[in-house]
């Protein structure tokens, strides 16, 4: 257990660093949004949760990971490169001339399932996929990462109602609850809480966990593989926007951008120093 935690923690650190360097070099990318969901993605991809094959991205039996909050593409691209879905040198051309991918998620990148960027949409595709797998009587699980700010979109709730009614227990919604949107904290903007109760009232099995703790995330994700609940599950993962880089946390102004110049140096130093809030 401890070994695994250490292994995944150092993986998350390395990926954070690579992602941050990539965005700094490009001068673009939603850095704080990518940082808040890093442990969630690492748990899925390195914690023996997702069934997938980097040598065969189109493997039919693979589980599907739908990144509905498409602005966290830097985190996913960094992971897919690390896993060998594509040559890691492509990261150097992120959002630059002759690059293969940029700020928002793009379906034609190996390992990526959907194009995202318009919020509230990936979750509907995820539910359609889950329903299709049930109709086909195949065993894939669909994991969908939704931003908490994305929960303002009405389409999320259209899908939530549908998924629960149709008992899509091969669907796992993970809400990256980092409490920040573009301009303000969510609870000041338009309050989302009690978010877990909202999902529960729509018919989901709901768990609320520390989204930066592998000890919290992994047991929940593992337990869902045997589909113990008749209904779909929503994991509300409490996170920190910018987690791992203290100097850009808790500040809405850092939404959607990459640090430059002195700020970039400061961020890299902060990352090395270790985050004050990560165990």
């Amino acid at each position: 257990m401890e070994d695994r935690r250490e292994r995944l923690t150092s993986k998350a650190f390395a990926l954070r660093k690579r992602m941050l360097e990539m965005c700094i070099a490009a001068g673009k990318g939603h850095v704080t949004s990518s940082l808040s969901c890093m442990e969630i993605l690492v748990a899925l991809y390195y914690g023996n949760i997702l069934r997938h094959d980097p040598r065969n991205p189109q493997w039919e039996q693979r589980d599907r990971f739908i990144l509905s909050k498409g602005q966290a593409s830097p985190a996913l691209y960094t992971i897919l490169a690390d896993l060998g879905y594509f040559d890691a040198s492509l990261l150097e051309r992120f959002a630059r001339l002759n690059g293969r991918f940029a700020v928002h998620l793009q379906k034609d990148v190996p390992g990526v399932e959907i194009t995202a960027g318009s919020l509230g949409q990936g979750f509907g595709l995820a539910a359609g996929l889950a329903l299709g797998f049930q109709m086909n009587r195949t065993l894939q699980t669909v994991y969908c990462l939704i931003g908490d700010g994305e929960c303002y979109e009405g389409s999320i709730w259209e899908t939530a109602m549908f998924a629960a009614h149709n008992r899509l227990n091969n669907l796992v919604a993970i809400v990256d609850r980092n409490y920040l949107c573009v301009t303000d904290f969510t609870e000041k903007l338009v309050a989302l809480e009690p978010l877990d109760e909202k999902w529960r009232s729509f018919g989901f099995h709901v768990v609320r966990v520390d989204g930066h703790s592998f000890d919290a995330l992994l047991p929940v994700l593992h337990s869902l593989k045997s589909r113990p609940h008749p209904q779909p599950t929503a994991i509300i993962a409490d996170t920190i926007k910018g987690c791992g880089v203290d100097c850009i946390c808790y500040d809405p102004l850092w939404h959607g951008c990459a640090p430059r110049g002195e700020a970039a140096e400061e961020c890299l130093l902060a990352l090395e120093k270790g985050a004050s809030h990560v165990q």
């Binding site: 509907g124 595709l125 359609g128 329903l131 299709g132 109709m135 549908f162």
Partner: peptide
Amino acid sequence: GQFVNVGIAEQNAIQIASGLALTGKKA
């Protein structure tokens, strides 16, 4: 087994149909 009613939720109808299509369905 080949009929799904999403309720009066057309946006979701497009997304569910599109998700189904990704599993090989003719939606």
